[in-house]
């Protein structure tokens, strides 16, 4: 055998190894020009979105206008309060919700600390956004959860949607919203936060109502309660511990989203973190991050103390 033969043999072998390419859009386009490339597909998706954007906006704009209004007013109100009044109100709320002296003192110390390092105004903006968004999540989420607990069909349809809302990377929410609303409008980040944070409120309301003791419900039926009476007197009160746990989760998720939402002009501590990243101001970013942690602990402890108070009323022997 000559060297040439060997080489040709090896070359033939290589030709065999060269795999058939996967018939992706780009590959198929090379063979036939009328097949669109992947690039064309994404461009088409964008065109489609831009085409339906205006009709969607006509419907969504007036619907979501109260959200902008509520956010703007909440932030303004929080900032117009003198520092001492704001702290007194927040401490009072903590005491009324949790009824735990330790937690209340921690809240007081946290806000005084934030004020001492001149982060109080930012913290108040963040808090205002969270409070408004949580309130809306509860107002919308709890009724959806109730409806979901009553219909297995609805539960089957909603569960994958809720899964999707929870697993979509948080930045992905922002992309279509930026197209729909102007970046100067608070409702842009308001909607992003609500979509992300509403999931546990819905889920745990549904779960809580489904877990209500069947014996107690049977008793309610046996004494002739209407379904409205059952909801108000049996299902909601017995599901309350779960609903409260859902609200606790909603608050924490709003907080995590409000930081990301600073990318689309949400005010508050998140803007400082963003500055830390953009201008490589390490100290600014870290201190603001620490402020967010403190705010998170405050919100979690207060809502958890409230939850425990509710649990105690329900649980035997607690």
């Amino acid at each position: 055998m000559t060297l040439d033969e060997l080489v040709s043999k090896a070359g033939g072998g290589e030709a065999e190894v060269e795999a058939i390419p996967f018939p992706s859009l780009d590959v198929l386009h090379k063979a036939c020009g009328s097949i669109p490339r992947t690039r064309d597909m994404t461009a088409g998706l964008e065109r489609l979105f831009l085409d339906v954007k205006d009709p969607i906006k006509v419907v969504l704009d007036p619907l979501t206008q109260p959200l902008s209004w509520a956010l703007r007013n909440a932030i303004e109100t929080m900032q117009s309060l003198p520092w001492w009044a704001a702290i007194i109100i927040l401490v009072l709320i903590a005491q009324l919700a949790g009824r735990r002296v330790g937690v209340t003192l921690f809240v007081l110390a946290s806000f005084l600390g934030l004020a001492f390092i001149d982060h109080f105004a930012y913290a108040m903006q963040t808090l205002a956004i969270i409070l408004v968004c949580t309130l809306i999540c509860v107002l919308i989420g709890v009724p959806i959860g109730i409806a979901m607990s009553r219909s297995n069909v609805l539960e089957r349809w909603l569960t994958p949607m809720l899964d999707m809302l929870q697993t979509l990377p948080t930045f992905v929410y922002l992309i279509p919203l930026i197209f729909l609303f102007s970046v100067t409008e608070p409702k842009l980040y308001g909607i992003a936060i609500i979509l992300y944070a509403i999931v546990p409120a819905i889920r745990l309301t549904n779960l809580g109502i489904r877990l209500v003791d069947a014996d107690v419900l049977e008793a309610a039926d046996a004494f002739g309660m209407t379904s409205r009476q059952k909801l108000l007197r049996v299902q909601l009160p017995l599901a309350l511990p779960n609903i409260m746990a859902g609200i606790n989760q909603t608050i924490m998720l709003s907080l995590s989203m409000v930081v990301i939402a600073s990318l689309v002009s949400a005010p508050g501590l998140g803007t400082l973190v963003l500055r830390g990243i953009n201008k490589l101001e390490l100290g600014v970013g870290l201190v603001a991050g620490l402020g967010i942690v403190i705010l998170a602990i405050v919100l979690d402890r207060v809502s958890r103390a409230a939850l425990q108070r509710v649990n105690k009323m329900h649980q035997p022997g607690a």
């Binding site: 107690v216 046996a222 004494f223 017995l238």
Partner: peptide
């Protein structure tokens, strides 16, 4: 159910709250 009959249950089925 409201006027003619009442029921007592094995697991009591009282409203805990």
């Amino acid at each position: 159910r409201r006027t003619q009959m009442s029921m007592v249950f094995q697991k009591f089925a009282l409203l805990p709250h």
